[in-house]
Structures are given as structure tokens and as C-alpha cells.
Nucleic acid binder design. Structure first.
Length: 184
DNA sequence: GGAATGATGTACT
DNA sequence: GTACATCATTCCG
């Protein structure tokens, strides 16, 4: 985990591609390979939640690297981030899509009727499929919810982030080249 | 205090 | 492609 979140936030966003997110939840185990990420920075990034400094909502985004930042969006969904950088920095990597590996049936249950390709192809979808929730905000990612580093190198595509109105031009979105499991 | 907005997903035309 | 659910936070007066 430490090796996974070392270095700059954009480095981590790239390195997380191919890593495996595992959740041993009370109702079962699920896992998925990370295929799409976005970096959110602390300086010069108008799209980042940390741009206003610490608030009750984004407090966990300022924890040490390797913690989770889970926030509610649009009043009804949640998104999951891996905090990066030193304590107090306020940078994180948003997980936007996974390739489902284990617990496909459980994911389908949690997601309701959903095509396999739609189980984890979006930030709020993967949160629901993996059984992640507000209870994981601020959790350290080394227990029942954790990330395993990939073995081999992968090819990465870079582009602008999705859904942001500010800082939309910055090339801070990263995808596994050729993956069919990405969002949009 | 009130209005607008948002790192989205789903359903419907 | 467009409409809308739904609410905490943000921004303005």
C-alpha cells in the first residue's frame, strides 16, 4: 500500500491503473481491477474539493496517503478516492471505473438489474457494486478494504477529466489502453 | 436566509 | 440526446 501511494498524485493516478481493489464486506467479498482514474490536486486545480481548505466534508482528503475519501454527490450518489501526498496536502485520486473480478453475483445484487459492463463503469457505480459507503470515509486502505499493486506495467491513455466545470482542460484523467470497462 | 450548483446515473423520447 | 431525481455545500444578498 505504501509503495502504491508514494510520489506525486498524478504518478499515483497512473500507478493505480491495473491495481486491484478488494473489499471483504459483511455480505461477501468483491474485487476489481482499476481501469480509470482522475487526479485532484491541491494547487491550481479549481475542480478539487480541497480548493477551499479543510471543511467537515473534505476533512479526510487531508489525511495521510493511503486513506479513503468518500463523499456524497448530487444528493444521492457516492464517489471513492484514494488520498495521496503528505498529511494536510489535500490531494487524491478518484476511482472512475473497475473491471469486475470477484463477487460478480454480489455486485449484481447491490446494483439491481445491470449489465456486466455497467456494474463498475462509473465512479458512483463502482462504489455501489463494491459495497463502499460513507462509513469508509477516512478509513485506512489496509484492512477489509484495500488495494493490491499490479505485477506488470501497463499502457496508459491520458485525457481531460469528466463532469468537471472548472479545470476541465487539465489532462488529469487516466485509462488503461484498450479497456472495455471504462466509463462513458 | 435563500438560490444555485455539483468529480452522476437512469429512464425516457 | 434530453430530462430529472435529490440534498449538502457553496455563493450571494
Amino acid at each position: 500500500m505504501n509503495a502504491l501511494v508514494a510520489g506525486s498524485t498524478t504518478q499515483v493516478a497512473r500507478r493505480l491503473l491495473g491495481a486491484v481493489l478488494v473489499h471483504e464486506a459483511p455480505d461477501g467479498c468483491t474485487s476489481g481491477r482499476v481501469v480509470e482514474t482522475e487526479a485532484y490536486l491541491s494547487k491550481g486545480d479549481e475542480a478539487s474539493h480541497s480548493r477551499m481548505g479543510t471543511t467537515p466534508r473534505n476533512a479526510s482528503m487531508f489525511l495521510a496517503a493511503g486513506h479513503a475519501y468518500v463523499y456524497r454527490i448530487y444528493g444521492m450518489h457516492h464517489c471513492f478516492n484514494v488520498v495521496t501526498g503528505p498529511v494536510g496536502e489535500g490531494e487524491a485520486v478518484l476511482l472512475r471505473a473497475l473491471e469486475p473480478l470477484e463477487g460478480l453475483e454480489l455486485m449484481r445484487e447491490r446494483r439491481g438489474r445491470s449489465r456486466e459492463l455497467d456494474l463498475c463503469s462509473g465512479p458512483a457505480k463502482l462504489v455501489q457494486a463494491m459495497g463502499i459507503g460513507p462509513q469508509h470515509d477516512g478509513a485506512q486502505l489496509d484492512g477489509r478494504l484495500r488495494l493490491d499493486l499490479r505485477a506488470s506495467r501497463v499502457e496508459v491513455d491520458v485525457g481531460p477529466r469528466i463532469g468537471v466545470t472548472r479545470g476541465a482542460a487539465l489532462p488529469l484523467r487516466f485509462r488503461l489502453r484498450g479497456s472495455v470497462w471504462c466509463s462513458r
